[in-house]
Simulated scan of single mutants.
Amino acid sequence: MTEAAPVSLRQCRVLVAEDEYMIADEIAEALVDAGAVVLGPISTVKEALDLIKAEPEIDGALLDVNLKGETSWLVVDALLARRVPMVLATGYEASAIPPLYVDLPRCEKPVGMTDLTRAIARQIANLKH
Rank of each mutant, 00 (worst) to 15 (best):
L104C: 10
I52H: 02
I120W: 14
L9N: 05
Q123S: 07
I124H: 09
T114M: 06
A36C: 08
L74T: 12
D64N: 09
Q11P: 03
N126C: 10
A30F: 01
D19F: 07
A121M: 01
L67C: 03
C12W: 03
P98K: 12
L63H: 12
I42S: 06
I52F: 11
G91W: 00
Q123T: 05
E93H: 11
S72C: 15
N66Y: 03
D64C: 10
P56E: 10
L74N: 15
N126L: 15
D33I: 02
V65C: 11
T114E: 14
A24Q: 03
A36R: 03
S95F: 08
L49N: 04
D50P: 08
T71H: 14
V45I: 06
D59K: 03
V32G: 00
Q11G: 01
E108I: 01
E55M: 14
R83G: 10
M1D: 05
D33P: 00
V7I: 08
Y101V: 11
L127G: 03
V75N: 02
A119H: 01
A61H: 08
S43W: 02
A119W: 08
R106H: 00
T44M: 02
S95Y: 09
V37R: 04
S8I: 02
E93N: 13
A36M: 08
E20W: 12
R82I: 13
T71Y: 08
